[in-house]
Design a protein around this nucleic acid. Structure first.
Lengths: 159, 159
DNA sequence: ACGAATATGAGGAATGCACTCTTATTTGGC
DNA sequence: GCCAAATAAGAGTGCATTCCTCATATTCGT
């Protein structure tokens, strides 16, 4: 009943991309450094994000990854489901083949409600909002002059 | 991000107990039969429920288990946390030692909201309510005469 | 052709899940 | 006291998943 590190890393990477001007291409190694993600592992994760259509990847010289859609149209749920598969808080929510009691079990209804609530919250704010809010709060936290983006300058350690 | 079978089985067993008159003692093997739970595994789970103080267990001849508190005061969250530990939708919710970004990360706030909502839903209805509702729905489903409890009569297969 | 980047697939160690099995220990009835 | 019926406790097993690493392509700009 917990987000895996895979999902957490995917979110970090996507927030990073969402904090940049639309269309910016970033190298994976750059993201892995700034967000403390094992480089090779992040490559696996970005491959999944790419396969799911959330990012474009460009190989070769000056390659990297970029968002495939505007950050305003992306949500945490998109990212999580891209790398972890669809969310099912309980097996009984997958389908009747996993629980024969769904038609008369009151607990099943509770799980329906819980899952709906969870998904609603994970889609309530776009990655664009989250990235913007994160940056502004980080600047407040660090008492930095406004306008310098902490997520893009490698000199600033995020820890 | 899913309830384990351990949690699912624990809920079934507790719903079973909650459907009986207060203070009733049931054998573990009886529950395991009616709810399709491996007998030995259920014994492990009931041991956890007992250690958590949710049920009393009695050994020896005519032994069994019974609710330690009225079913009206028990919730799904109690049961789940008894066998799975406290719910943390993301590691960052456990404490700052798992994520140094909590003070300025907007995603962290979303997880807080999600977890709160989930817990609220899992405590909204008592096991007494859930058991009662399940039984009445089951009777409707089976078109049985009112008053016969499906969860107590071993002759009826629940499948 | 070269070098800088991602893609891909084969692992691999560690952990957790879903159990089983065995050996106590307790209790009530004879 | 003894036996049968029940839980207690702990070890152990098989499997899947998580969280990675590494080696080897493949792609593209110059």
């Amino acid at each position: 009943m917990q987000l895996t590190l895979t999902g957490e890393y995917a979110i970090r990477a996507m927030i990073h991309l969402a904090s940049l001007p639309e269309g910016t291409i970033v190298q994976i190694s750059q993201i892995s450094e700034q967000w403390e993600i094992p480089d090779n592992f992040l490559r696996k994760i970005t491959a999944q994000l790419s396969k799911a259509g959330l990012i474009f990847s460009h190989r070769g010289n000056a390659g990297g990854i970029q968002l495939a859609r505007p950050a305003e149209t992306l949500t945490l749920l998109d990212v999580i489901e891209a790398v972890e598969g669809k969310i099912y808080l309980n097996k009984c929510l997958i389908g009747p083949q996993f629980c024969s009691r769904t038609s008369w079990c009151a607990v099943h209804i509770v799980w329906c409600e819980a899952q709906q609530a969870l998904k609603e919250i994970l889609t309530r704010r776009s990655l664009a909002e989250l990235a913007a809010s994160t940056i502004s709060k980080f600047e407040q936290y660090q008492s930095l002059p406004h306008g310098s983006s902490p997520l893009n300058s490698p000199s600033q350690s995020i820890s």
